[in-house]
Structure formats: structure tokens, C-alpha cells
Nucleic acid binder design. Sequence first.
DNA 1: CAATACCCTACCAAACAAGTGGACTTCATT
DNA 2: AATGAAGTCCACTTGTTTGGTAGGGTATTG
Lengths: 137, 137
Amino acid sequence: MLSRKAQYAFRALTHLVEKYDQGPVLISEISKKKKIPLKFLENILLELKKAGILESKKGKGGGYYIKNHPSKTHMANIIRIVDGPIAMLPCVSLYFYERCKNCNEEFCALHDTMIAVRDATLGILEHRTLQDLTIPR
Amino acid sequence: MLSRKAQYAFRALTHLVEKYDQGPVLISEISKKKKIPLKFLENILLELKKAGILESKKGKGGGYYIKNHPSKTHMANIIRIVDGPIAMLPCVSLYFYERCKNCNEEFCALHDTMIAVRDATLGILEHRTLQDLTIPR
DNA sequence: CAATACCCTACCAAACAAGTGGACTTCATT
DNA sequence: AATGAAGTCCACTTGTTTGGTAGGGTATTG
């Protein structure tokens, strides 16, 4: 399951996509419009900025805005930044790989199943972008 | 990510599949062979029993064993018992459905993406069974 | 100077991982 | 039958991590 933090991140990003190319947006505006706790949102946006997704401007007339075109950032990327690994096991993660203990000595039966799950999931999340967040079905 | 508990569960089940139809297996034997903390494993097995996956026999000569044929139990089922929802959002979960707050008023952009992810994931996990745990590839 | 992002610390609650102690059940031996 | 060892069963406790909240102070810009 996505953490609430990740869900907030997507909600905030949705707002920022709608305001794309209209200058910086106040944290407080996003917080109000999307009903996200202000201080919590502050941390999330900062994290997204440090990860290169957002840009910010300080002082009067400042705020947050999306760095690159929304179609350039994939949903999978956002999840990795906020929640970490997408894969179900560390030993099948592409970006957060860790060798399983007891996974070499004994035959790791889950391994190939979880690779299949990962590929199926990424097949979707790597092809949807921030722009899709505002496209109604 | 799967919790360590779920990983333990799969490791333990792998052992039980190997010993299927050979009578009850001791918790202590599984704990030793698969390097799982004994008392923790005790709780996991009990949970799997209550969920109808395992059967147990008390007293001397007792132990745990798989209730139905290993090909009858899907991996998705095990994950749901131990870790809960497989879906990434409560509002797209089949077995743990919950209505999202702010998902009705505003357009929930993630919804259909997460349904796609869920279906892709279940397409795999609903077709792999405990028996697959012991089939080397 | 005022508005705003940035940053730091502390705090609370829940979940997770693991361990403890003991009650209850079954079986084999005598 | 009585006994004791071998087992599961189960309610607690403990320590750690994580998710989320709250407040205040600093730096930067118009």
C-alpha cells in the first residue's frame, strides 16, 4: 500500500500540474485546496524538490512549481522518492537492491514470481506521468 | 514491500510443502532449518492456521502441516492473510476496500492507474500457488 | 519590512519484530 | 490409569521503527 504521504504527494502534484507555467504556487494554497496538513506538506514538497521534481522560489511572490514538463516525470519515480522500493522484495528491486539473507544458500522460491510482479507493475507506472494526473477518463 | 513476517511465512510454507503428506512438522524444525525466530514463527503459523491454510496437531508427535493440496492455495491469499491488502490504495482493493476521503469530491487521478497495477499484480499472484514454491526454474 | 521557503527539534501514536511465561493437549511408558 | 515429556496455544511485554503533528527560528526575496 502507498503511504498517506505518497497519496498527499500525488494530490499536491495534481494541483501543481494544473498550475503548470503559471508561476510559483504557495504551500498554503495547496494545503487548503487539497486538504493536506500544512507542515506535513512542507516536508513532502521539500523532499520532491531535493529529488529534482520541483523547483521553489523564496520570498514574496515565492512558492513551488514543477521543474520539468509534467510528461517527463513518471509516477514510478514519485513513489520511489516518497515511499522507497516498488518491488515486493529487496532482492528484486532495481533501485533499492539488497541481497536477501538465506536467499543464496537455499533456493529462493519467491524470487522469479516477484520479478514478474515487479515488471508488470513497472510496465504501468513507468508509462504514466504527472500529466496523466489531470486527464479525466 | 512484503514485511519480514510475510517473507518468513513463505519460507516456512516452502518447508511445509516439501514435507507435504509426511505428517506434522515441528515448529522448532522449521525454525532451525529456515532460520526463523522460534516464537515469532509460532505466531505466524497460528495465524495461517486460523486462516485455514494450515492444520496442526497438539501433543507428542504433533506439529503443523498444510491443510489442502499445495496447488489449491494461491500466493495472493498468503500475502492478504499476513500483510493485508495487495493493492496500492484502499479504494482499489478487492478484499480490503475502503472509500477514499477526498476521492469523490475531487477527481481521483490515481484510481484507474492503481486498478491497472492491481490487476497486473493479481494476474500473477492469483495464478501461482504454494506448489510453485518448490519448483526450481 | 513583510512574505515566504527552509530547516530543526521535539513529540505522540501506531505498527512491527521479537521475546517471555505459562496454560492446555496429546501420546507413550510404566 | 498416572505420569511426564513433547507439543501447540495464547496473552503479555518490550524495544524499535515509522507516520504524522506541532512549533519556532533562519534565510531570502520583492
